[in-house]
């Protein structure tokens, strides 16, 4: 039996995309927003982070193509802008002289940054407006779409975060995020060559909301709660793998309430569940491994090279000299 939690903790430290630490991305986002504010021919807006930044479930991408999701909540109503694409075009126009490649896509307006041919990062700007009841809607569609594809769809960029905050408290929530991040990296690692076979990150978040259970134990002496991420991860993967239906289903608990797994084809789903089985096997083997080296080897095969290797000790090394606080 090996405690792989210190290694999972190190792994998480390596893969975690920390908004507070990604200074370049934050700076770039602010440059774009200031540029837009200065040049926008349209209503004013309040920006906020959305997606994995808001949920703090983001991981460093393997390809280096970071994405930043920003919601622009316009101080206008969907009645004043019956065609959502019109408002998105104002955003596009406001960013035209930014010096970067900007494209209007169906869910958002995207600013691309590249170094040579390599994508460095992109900023997705999603456009929102309120209806008469103050509910937020996202602008969907692009020029040339049929009118029924150019719609305002009910969606609140921060609703999912609020839902998670309500569902998991304090350190429970932190464990939830850690497990999601590990799964996202696993997804990037295992499905990178599969293209569209990979489930989206939001699907893993939706899955965690359905199958993740907090795993913690209170030490009867020091009374601290010890979070067993390995057990939580294994239990979740096992539950997904053993899900009795052919297709995994996990509806998002907030508007628009869709199931992000729906977009996967039968074949993709099949591959996904095979990978889940492999992950479950790897975790079980690692936990049962008599030594850490063996455990790390097995896990590196599923989580990739960022998982600490047999030779690598946890980066958060414990201090060997501490104040004892005791006397007699």
């Amino acid at each position: 039996m090996t405690n792989i939690n210190p290694y999972l903790a190190t792994f998480d430290e390596t893969i975690k995309l920390d908004w507070d630490r990604t200074g370049v991305l934050r700076e770039r986002r602010n440059v774009i927003l200031e540029h837009l504010r200065a040049r926008l021919d349209g209503p004013s807006f309040d920006p906020c982070n959305q997606g994995s930044y808001d949920l703090r479930t983001g991981v460093h991408p393997l390809s280096g193509d970071y994405d930043i999701d920003v919601a622009l909540r316009f101080n206008t109503t969907i009645d004043e802008w019956p065609d959502p694409v019109a408002l998105k075009q104002r955003v596009l126009a406001g960013l035209e002289d930014l010096g970067s490649s900007v494209r209007l896509r169906r869910p958002c307006v995207t600013v691309f940054y590249r170094r040579g041919d390599e994508p460095l990062y992109h900023v997705d700007l999603a456009v929102y407006a309120r209806d008469a009841h103050e509910r937020l809607h996202i602008a969907c569609g692009k020029p040339g779409d049929r009118p029924d594809m150019r719609i305002w769809q009910p969606s609140d960029p921060q609703a999912l975060g609020a839902f998670i905050d309500g569902r998991f408290k304090d350190q429970d929530r932190v464990q939830f995020r850690r497990v999601v991040r590990v799964l996202k990296r696993w997804k990037d690692e295992r499905f990178s060559s599969e293209g569209e076979a990979a489930p989206r990150g939001i699907a893993l978040t939706a899955a965690a909301l359905k199958w993740f259970r907090v795993e913690r134990r209170q030490d009867p002496v020091d009374m601290r709660f010890h979070y067993d991420d390995a057990a939580a991860l294994l239990a979740m993967v096992k539950a997904m793998h053993e899900y009795p239906e052919r297709r995994l289903k996990a509806k998002l608990p907030v508007a628009p309430g869709n199931d992000p797994f729906e977009r996967m084809t039968e074949r993709q789903m099949e591959i996904f569940r095979e990978e889940l089985e492999r992950l479950e096997r790897a975790l079980t083997t690692a936990l049962g491994s008599p030594d850490r080296d063996g455990a790390c080897d097995v896990l590196r095969r599923v989580f990739g090279d960022d998982f600490p290797g047999p030779e690598g000790k946890p980066t958060r090394k414990r201090s060997a000299i501490v104040a004892s606080g005791s006397a007699a």
Partner: peptide, 28 residues
Amino acid sequence: CLFTPAQEERAPALCNRAAFAAPGQAVT
């Protein structure tokens, strides 16, 4: 056993589980 962290501890630290003082404070 008092100096042995919980089996599932994510960041095992050198401390006495019996302590009333939170770890990492030098009180002299």
